[in-house]
Structure formats: structure tokens, C-alpha cells
Design a protein around this nucleic acid. Sequence first.
DNA 1: TTTAGATTTGTAATGAAAACAATTTTAATA
DNA 2: TATTAAAATTGTTTTCATTACAAATCTAAA
Lengths: 162, 162
Amino acid sequence: MTLHYVIPLVFPPSSFFTIPMLTEITKEEVISRLRNAGISPSGPRIAVFHFLCNNHIHPTVDTIFHALSPENPTLSRTTVYNTLKLLLAKKLIQSVKIEDTEVRFDGNPAFHAHFKCRQCDCIIDLFDVPCPAIPQSEDFQIELPQVNFYGICRNCQQKLKA
Amino acid sequence: MTLHYVIPLVFPPSSFFTIPMLTEITKEEVISRLRNAGISPSGPRIAVFHFLCNNHIHPTVDTIFHALSPENPTLSRTTVYNTLKLLLAKKLIQSVKIEDTEVRFDGNPAFHAHFKCRQCDCIIDLFDVPCPAIPQSEDFQIELPQVNFYGICRNCQQKLKA
DNA sequence: TTTAGATTTGTAATGAAAACAATTTTAATA
DNA sequence: TATTAAAATTGTTTTCATTACAAATCTAAA
């Protein structure tokens, strides 16, 4: 079977750039999600998870640390690392391996593809790229795949044109 | 349109594990490919590219360096880095961003998915996972996507059963 | 109030990658 | 063949994300 796709003239095309309802996730909702996952909702954990849920910028550890430090003066990088590892293990977030050497994080654990702009290094969610078939085993769970695109984002395309 | 997939009992299932003809790529063929790409075929470049074409193990820089050092006693890590960067720019190879912090390399630049075993850390080519639709722009080339699966490979599944 | 376990913190260590300058090689020209 | 400029390679140094580790702090149960 061959699938045919409409080839858009700009990237990301609107059909690949659906923006989901960006309702603010409250601290209470964050605490509830942590409790449901069996994680005791400490201050740093609430802060890190809340930041990831409401900032769809696929931050690095350092970005998270610097964003939260002013409000949490005693926060340490190690705690950010520990917290992210814990959230990943409980599948409350996902990691995005789209850079060569550093990991980025995404507060939305559901499958979606990502696009990295080679010009401005932004990372954009692509909610309308279908998830590739995930082979399942009787004995083992195969995790969601990562699907990463690379290129030039629409903003940078327009800047380069001008 | 909904697609239905046969769910295999073991992973990787045979249909996801097609092994292409693994004919040895000769040094002459390697030199020819380098010349066609406008790269002068120096000793280190031939060695690195030849290694990648004939060892489908998705090696790291360090693995390549240690594999080639005995035959090339003066080879330096920096040269391996430089050569890989050049081969990538000319699209003779591809990088595989499937680990958190280090990049792996693949002598086959054509699209195929990858699977990483969380148990033994091996990386397996999945030649039968279809390439997601690649949005194309009039002005900019969007590069091939990376599709990465994670889980437990068949070997480790059997070891864990026993 | 005590105390054990959980959590957080800061420092040190690791290691991949990049930056950099110097050396060596190559290839064109005299 | 000799000269020389560009290309390629090399080793060292630096950077920086991540991990390891041990000490300090906090939490919640007894």
C-alpha cells in the first residue's frame, strides 16, 4: 500500500502544527498528578513539574534550574536532575533526545513528534505526525518511539527570505 | 483512515528486522564515494568511512577511534571527530541521537528506524518501519527524521526468561 | 521528642565534544 | 627537483552536561 501526502509549501504546515488547548496546569493539579504516581509532592518536585507542564519550550536541565532559582533560592541542580529522573521513571514527562549532547524535557508524556530548527535551535511540537506502529511483546512493553525532524522553522525561513 | 497492525509476540518481529544484503564495501568503493562527494580520500577518512560502512554497530567516536588505532597508530580523536563531521555534512553517513549524551554513527545514510535495548545497550536497525511523511518546503530542505524505539531486544528477552 | 528514612544540597569526578594552535602532508608551481 | 601555500592531521586544553558521592536537612511515624 502506498500512502500519498499533500506536500505543504511552508514548514511547519498548519496541519502539522496543531496547538492543543493550553490551559494552565495549577499547582493543585500538579500535586494531584504527583500523588497519583506515588511521588510525595515536595517543593522542588512541584516546582519542576509545574514548570514543565506550563512551559512548552522543551527546556534543558540548566534552563529549568535558572528559571526556578529566583523563587527557590536553595534549589540545586542535582535536585533538578533527581526530580526529572523520577518524573521520567513514573512517565509523567518525557525526554527529548534531539540534540547531540544534552537532553531536553517535555511535560507532555503522550506521543508527539518534535521539530528542531537548525537556525534558532527552537524545538516545536508536531502533534499531527502519526505515531509509528509500536511493536508489542507479550512479555515486554516497548516504549513510545521518538520521532524527530530537523530543518528551518517558519520564523527563520521568513527572516532568511528578507 | 485507520491502519491496523499485526501485533507480534516477540520484539523485534521478523517483519521489523529485515536484514539487507551485507556485502562488504571495499576500500575502492569507499574511495569512490568520497571522491563523488568532493572529499579527498585521505588515509584517516578512508579508514573511518570504511569502518562505518562495514560495521553496523552504530559506534561512538571512541569505539571508532579504538577500533582503528592499531592499524593507524598516529590517528587522533580529533581527526575522527573532524572526519565524521565532514561525512555528515556530505550526507555519506547519519548520526543517531538515541543516547542521552553521546552521538552514535551509522554508515547507511538512508532512512531507517533504530531500536535501543535498555538491557544490553545494543542498537538495532529497523528497516521496515516506514518513514514518517516528511513535510517539504519550497525554500528549505527538511532532513530525514530520526525514529527511535526503546525496549528490550529479543536476545535479552530470552536471557531474562531463563 | 526521638529517630529512621526520605529528600535535598554542594562538591567532586567523569567523559563527550569543541576550541585551538602547531605540525605534517599534499599538490600545484617555479 | 625545490618551493610554497593550502589542506589535513595531531595533541593539548577547555568546556560543560551528567553522574557519583557524602553531608545536611526535612518529614513523618513511633
